[in-house]
Computed example of a mutant assay.
Amino acid sequence: MLRVGLTGGLGAGKSTLARFLAQKGAAVRDADAVVEELYLPQGTAVLPLVRAFGERILTAQGGVDREKLKKLVAADPSALLMLNRIVHPLVRAEMARWLEELEHRPQGPLVAVVEAALLVETGSFRSYHRLVVVTAPLSVRRERAAASGLSLEAVRRLMEAQADDETKRKVAHYIVDNSGTLAELEAKAEALWQHLLADAQAVAEGRPLSTGPALVL
């Protein structure tokens, strides 16, 4: 099974690309969805987060209130660093468990995709056979992020916490330019899928994957 990391900056369109790949047959797991599970009342992130930030971050049901936590770390870089140190290892562990479970399924998928915003920043991209980076001009990304309901300050803060596109491009195997239309991205998803299937075949046969400059789609 080919293990693929999918990342991109805020507003780049990685979730849309992930959806297209899922439609083509990839198993896809979103890091944000994993965080939601970790924040449930019985989630493994609850106790360490309460130890770090106190019970003020809890919901009435005993889970973690994401909005309260966001406000708490928004203006405090050290609190954000603490949050990331707690949550990111838990997310990585769950992704590793999920991928291992897929590997052992009798009729498992050929391609498994982990979608996460900070694969490059955390170094997690090294755990995957292939890294796909979705890019778009900064002005386009800001416009998309603002259209999703985020304030300009929230957009600025989130973008500052992420590596720039150039840093991501340096470690990518595939770069998908999403500066165009949805139809154009869908066509690029099909082209990417064919490359990933070829990579999956190589992995299944024990052949080394090709190296060299990233392929830009």
Rank of each mutant, 00 (worst) to 15 (best):
I175S: 04
A26W: 06
G212S: 03
F20E: 11
K68E: 09
H173N: 15
N84H: 09
A147Y: 07
S78I: 10
V120S: 02
V4K: 03
R3D: 01
P106M: 14
T211A: 15
M95Y: 00
L83I: 09
W193G: 02
Y128G: 00
G108I: 05
E101G: 04
P89M: 08
D65H: 10
L152K: 15
A202T: 11
V50E: 07
A187F: 05
L81Y: 11
A74P: 04
A198E: 13
R56A: 14
A147L: 04
K170R: 15
H88L: 11
F53M: 06
S15C: 05
V114C: 12
A204Y: 07
S127P: 02
A187G: 09
R56C: 08
V140M: 07
G11I: 04
A93G: 09
A112P: 00
Q107K: 11
L80H: 12
V216T: 11
V87P: 11
P48H: 09
A60T: 06
R3S: 06
I86S: 02
G63W: 01
Q201T: 10
A117C: 07
E67T: 15
G25M: 05
F53G: 02
A27Y: 14
V134Y: 02
V73F: 02
E166C: 12
A189G: 10
H195N: 13
P137S: 08
V114H: 03
L209K: 15
L99C: 06
S179Y: 09
Y174G: 05
A52L: 07
V111K: 04
L158V: 09
V34H: 00
E160N: 11
L72Y: 10
P106N: 04
A93C: 07
R97F: 09
A60L: 13
G62Q: 08
W98S: 08
L10D: 04
D199M: 06
P41G: 00
L81K: 15
A60G: 09
G206A: 01
G63K: 00
E143P: 01
A183K: 11
P41D: 03
R157L: 12
L90S: 07
S148C: 10
A189C: 06
L209E: 01
K14T: 10
A154S: 15
H129V: 05
S124E: 13
N84R: 11
K71R: 15
G180K: 03
R85G: 15
L69C: 06
F53P: 02
G5E: 03
W98A: 08
A45E: 09
G43A: 02
A136N: 11
A145N: 00
R51Q: 14
R51M: 08
L119N: 06
G8T: 03
V91I: 03
L152S: 14
A26F: 06
E55K: 13
H173C: 04
G180H: 08
A27E: 13
V133E: 00
L152V: 00
A74H: 12
V140L: 11
R85Y: 02
A117I: 03
R130I: 13
E101C: 02
A183D: 14
G25Y: 10
P109C: 08
A74M: 13
G54F: 08
A117W: 08
A146I: 07
A163S: 13
G25K: 09
V216R: 13
P77E: 03
E190Y: 10
A191W: 10
H104V: 12
G54W: 10
V34I: 15
L90D: 06
Q162D: 09
L217W: 05
L21S: 00
D30H: 15
Y128H: 15
L49Q: 08
D76Y: 12
K14L: 02
T7P: 07
E36F: 01
A204P: 05
